[in-house]
Amino acid sequence: MIVAKLIDTTLCIGCKACEVACQEWNDQEYTLGTFDGSYQTMPDLAPNFWNLIKFNEVEKNGGTSWLMSKYQCMHCADAGCIAACPAPGAIVQLANGTVDFAHDNCIGCGYCITGCPFDVPKLSPTTKKVYKCTLCSDRTAVGLEPACIKTCPTNCLTFGERDEMIRVADIRTRELKADGFKDAGVYNPQGVGGTNVIYVLNDVKQPESYGLPKDPVIPWTVQLWKGPMKVLGTLAFVGAILGAFFHFVIYGPQDPEVHGHDEE
């Protein structure tokens, strides 16, 4: 069973209870954020801060929209972090779709940071390993919902079987459209095979206004490096070694005594 988090941004009141619940459950030490004139706790996610409510102020139709959106690992079906990771077993995809980091195997190279189209994983300067939301895999493993979901007071956050979450999201979208949000829709980007964190947005045509990328894909340089370049490298190395070996077999060494040389 694939599970998913559903974030209905239209119901988020920006209380940040999910931020606190995440910190508490994952036993994170709180680091003072940066005040930059916004209600946002800190500008970006951090190695010990995996769940951030973004307070997006967007000029729209002559007024200002205050769009709050929960920002964390998207648990992609086709995850860029896994594609980029060189250490077997450092990033695992559980049977329920959760993308989880196994820190015993993490070498701290940070390739996952570059592979992730959502710029989520963060390298810790103290442990030299990379951290992000685990979808509370230690809770879901025993049938509990993630801490953020458990604490949400407005039902903005729900958790369950992925197909069910998509069905709920579609119903909610229809309600929003009936209420006049004609561009309301579900954010479940297909460029990464769909995500196990899906959003209901009141304007799905402009996900950027919520701080979400419009068409996230695994970066093409990462795909090039993990795909064609490996074939090229293998051909080059094996070709050079075999070429050298067979050159020796055919022509042998360049020996002045064998080839001779006129005496001067």
Partner: peptide, 26 residues
């Protein structure tokens, strides 16, 4: 130092490093 480098540079570097290495090692 991926945490200090802009994403655009990292995306170039991640492809350039192995490509240069393939040439060099060959």
């Amino acid at each position: 130092f991926p945490e200090w480098m802009p994403r655009s540079l990292r995306l170039i570097a991640i492809a350039m490093h192995p490509l240069a290495a393939i040439g060099s090692i060959s």
